[in-house]
Computed example of a mutant assay.
Amino acid sequence: MTDRGLTLPSLMTRKRRVRPTSIVPPGNVAGRALLTVIAIMTFLASLTVGAVTLVSDTAATWQSQISREITVQVRPDDGLDMAGALRSVQMLALATPGVLSADILDDAATGRLLEPWLGEGLDLDELPVPRLVIIAIDEDAPPDFATLGNSVRAAVPQASLDDHRAWVSRLVSMARATVLIGIAILSLVMIATVLTVVFATRGAMTGNRHIIEVLHFVGARSSFIAAEFQRHFLKLGLVGAVAGGACALLVFLLVGYWTRANQATPEADQINALFGSFAIGWTGYGGVVVLVVAIGILTAVTSRITVTKQLAAIDMLSPVER
Rank of each mutant, 00 (worst) to 15 (best):
V242I: 09
Y285S: 13
L47H: 03
L250N: 07
V307K: 01
T42K: 00
T96G: 06
L8F: 05
R165W: 06
A261I: 03
D315W: 15
G237P: 00
P319T: 07
T71P: 03
A60K: 08
R16L: 15
D140W: 14
D140G: 08
D3R: 11
F252Q: 01
L215P: 03
T61C: 12
A166Y: 01
A246N: 03
L114N: 04
T302P: 01
F252C: 06
K309Y: 15
P319Q: 05
K309F: 12
E321Y: 13
L238I: 06
N208V: 08
T13L: 13
V251D: 09
V289D: 04
L188E: 08
V168W: 06
R176S: 14
D123P: 10
I185T: 07
T147F: 13
P143L: 09
I191C: 08
M41W: 02
F145Y: 04
A175K: 06
E267Y: 14
S187L: 12
G111K: 04
L215I: 10
L6A: 09
A268R: 11
G237V: 02
A136N: 09
V251A: 10
L127M: 08
L215S: 05
G111D: 00
D106E: 02
F278I: 02
T61P: 09
L47S: 07
L188A: 10
G182Q: 01
L34I: 05
L34D: 00
D77H: 08
V133S: 04
E228M: 10
G98W: 06
G256D: 05
S101W: 12
G119Y: 01
F145I: 07
L132T: 07
T193M: 12
R260Y: 11
K15A: 15
T96W: 01
V242L: 07
Y285N: 14
F199V: 14
Q73C: 10
T206A: 13
T308L: 11
A159T: 03
D269R: 15
I181N: 05
A268G: 03
V251K: 01
S169N: 12
L80N: 00
L298Q: 12
P319K: 04
Q230E: 10
A155I: 06
G203S: 09
R17Q: 15
L114Y: 05
